[in-house]
Amino acid sequence: MKNWIILLIFCCFGWSAYSQDDLLGLLGEEETTDYATAAFKTNRVINLHSLESTAAGVLDIKISHRFGMLNRGAYDLFGLDNATIRIGADYGITNRLTVGFGRSSYEKTLDGFVKYKFLRQSSGKKVMPITAALFASTAVQGLRWANPDRENYFSSRLTYTYQLIFGRKFSDNFSLQFSPTVVHRNLVKFSIEANDVYAAAMATRIKLTKRMAINAEYVYVLPDQLVPGYRNSLSIGFDIETGGHVFQLHFTNSTSMIEKGFVTETSGDWLDGGIHFGFNVSRVFTVHKPRH
């Protein structure tokens, strides 16, 4: 008898609690996978490729400029009288696969690259601590042969770069990435130079406001591969975003804006004012709209 009363009370109580409860709670949480986005504002940090891809169907036109070195003094208006430029275009074939090409005034070089993101940082249902991408590029140097009388081969103009890019967006404001790099040069000037140059690159972004960030990158070239005089590339810059454009303003000791150049041919000395002021302007166009 007593038991039945308890059951009755329980039923009444249980029932009323059931209908008072918040309704969404009844459905329970459906676990979803949350992919990290926008670890960097664009697919470049400064010179280095960032772990970001260009979104599917998006064309990203990039115009990059490096003025002359600051230590050229007032006569050259601290480098502003000279400039090297790279004009390029990147396109997202899928959200993971980006291709691009560009033409640099520095050594009249044409370059093309493929980048494939094979891991995406995510939390929730599927947990992946990092984003990782493979990058490969080819550069064709276009200068006239220094010595046209001897037999010259087209292959001598070619350089290849392979990179594994991996990193993490630690918080909304802080992203960090590493990229082990190898640059293969078909032809080098001196026999003491390595054809395969191994380097380790590191880059970070610190977001200051919603539309502004500080970037920094450093490329450490393993010793005894380059002739003396070449230095590691160090760049520091600002990203400023204004709707469809991203302006990247920076200081760097590298003249070239492509891997084979800034990894193996950086000559500027930061301590001696061997620094270029430069900028990248990126403008995206949605060429192909995704279907809902």
Partner: peptide
């Protein structure tokens, strides 16, 4: 996600902001 209780006439909705799909990837990011 939506749930409706016909007895109490209560309704509740929940949506994930990241699940909004835009035509332009950059708009979605912004």
């Amino acid at each position: 996600t939506a749930i409706l209780d016909t007895e109490s006439s209560r309704m509740e909705f929940a949506i994930l902001i990241k699940a909004f799909q835009f035509e332009k990837a950059l708009m979605q990011e912004h």
